[in-house]
Design a protein around this nucleic acid. Sequence first.
DNA 1: AATTGGCACTCGTTGCGTTAGAGTGCTAAC
DNA 2: GTTAGCACTCTAACGCAACGAGTGCCAATT
Lengths: 344, 344
Amino acid sequence: MDDRARHLLKSLIEQHISSGHPVGSRQLAKDAGLAISAATVRNVVADLEDAGYVVAPHTSAGRIPTPLGYRFFVDSLIHVTPLSGSFQRMLLQRIGAHLPDAEEVLQATTAMLSELTHLVSFIRVPKRAHQILRHVDFIALRENEVLAIFVTDRGEVENRLLRTESPLSPSVLTQAANFFNASYGGRPLQEVIAQLEEDLLRSRAEMDQILRNAMELGKEMLMADQQGMMVDGELQLLDIPDLADGPRLRELLRTIRQKRELVMLLDGCVQSSSVRLFIGGESGLAPLSDFTLVSAPYHVDGEPVGVIGVLGPLRMPYPEIIPLVDGTARLLGQALSRTSLPSP
Amino acid sequence: MDDRARHLLKSLIEQHISSGHPVGSRQLAKDAGLAISAATVRNVVADLEDAGYVVAPHTSAGRIPTPLGYRFFVDSLIHVTPLSGSFQRMLLQRIGAHLPDAEEVLQATTAMLSELTHLVSFIRVPKRAHQILRHVDFIALRENEVLAIFVTDRGEVENRLLRTESPLSPSVLTQAANFFNASYGGRPLQEVIAQLEEDLLRSRAEMDQILRNAMELGKEMLMADQQGMMVDGELQLLDIPDLADGPRLRELLRTIRQKRELVMLLDGCVQSSSVRLFIGGESGLAPLSDFTLVSAPYHVDGEPVGVIGVLGPLRMPYPEIIPLVDGTARLLGQALSRTSLPSP
DNA sequence: AATTGGCACTCGTTGCGTTAGAGTGCTAAC
DNA sequence: GTTAGCACTCTAACGCAACGAGTGCCAATT
């Protein structure tokens, strides 16, 4: 493909992104800024169609980009410019306003991303496997109910009500908690679970029951990761005039709701070095085939722990969206990292 | 209004609820089961229109009920039959499956209600004011960060990261927690807050800082009540063919999102003796004027603590919806009450 | 060999008149 | 008080023609 064709394809896609309509040869010739007639444009565009980058919705209409066309566009036709320093500072301020509560930070970040992009945004929550178990508590609530509380070094708290077969006295519970803290405290959650599993096989002490329950709670905490995803801005989807309602939108919303598939998709991006796009059917998920997903992993203390992203129509302003998602991911990681806390 | 008119109005509304179309005199005469001609029906319906119970969308169409018509319908034309025992047992089983975790119970209940009614459902979460503070913990996470954890007798846990000005040793924190538990434990949250406020004025001890923070956490727990609402089934709104998209739907979704107004509305129903309906504009909230809200308070241990409800188009199957909401409220209260727990 | 203007052709969109049907209100008869 | 009949109204659906945007192709031009 020669230079002129690339330029025309770029111009065509840009026009279609901003107008939403199919782009005709006449308009394209005018807007591309080339000293070229509409007829010549037609020839070139016909080649682009043969190559699969654009299609005509019907015989006598202009062309619109195919997913392949968008892919080529983002890969080879545009170069994204990083966010300006002042803009970054603004975002960071907005994200960081909710420190030190990590959950609130995540919520604020999705809300912000959705607002800035006018798209649905989501965050794959940070993995907990490497968080360190800081504290465990067993609290007697009523006769046969014990509340188990796990606290990690990042301030995440998970709790669960346990039913016990026989009433346990507060002193037994305190003892159990002390033992627990001594044995398992200060170690990564993942290790704790493994250790618990092993210990349970060996010992058959009277604490079995509470140990077992605690282990399950620990497992649940890790398990929660497997469906930990925050979504914001679903309403933005209703504002897309193109696919206004249609069954595809329904399908998409349901997919977002169910999370499972999306989470699997996102988890494949955690190790990516940078921003990553799934345009149209590239994700392999049927309900996404009319949409584009832009994702970027974020790192906490150097470890890639989660992914943020936005989801919208194929026709989205990529040159703005991509740096926004990328930048937000970096800033989020920065905000959540230990080093971000002001030293005393 | 005579008996026949009542019968016709009832029949008209039932037909419109099931078909969604305006109901004409011919159809109505046939379906009402009266030995009456269409012409007679026309006369009666004309009176009903004068009385404001029905309107004709345009000159040569049948009639559809007005909000006033629906109001009369639910007040005087139908009598709701309670849910069957076996059905109640089924629901209770589904609700209770998630005990003893109250939060999960609430979530399961909204999901169930939404699924059964095919409407948006929501729950005003139980008020915490009367819950008893069972346990407080202060945990040192890092240099200047302390995690405060409050536990109530119902197993609700709230936590918050506090920044302290100077590093606090674990022993100081333990001491603080012990003091806290001894002074304030076992009392209703509301009292705890009041007491804290008072104590803070008097003492100027070194614990001031942590006390103050703890008080704020306690306040936050109560405050959280003020916007505590769960929503499920927003997607159901998209299935309403009538107002398919339109700006009203958007407006409604936004209102649901913002919660504030809805929460205020619902709070007005906590003291109601039973199920309560807001048909059309009756709520005074403009975005609800094309919808009906059905709410019912639920009681925990005899105290009215929250409200559940559904939201849908004016044209909803009231004779099914009303007992469903009412029954679910009762069962939810039952599930959450202490007495529902199997005694040892 | 690439480019361009011209031209016939296609097809979606828009606007308009026509028709069919449903339903009403009214009146006169029962 | 009820009913049948009838003229009238209004919407929804359909068909049709005009319009215009856009294409593809060909022959002429550079």
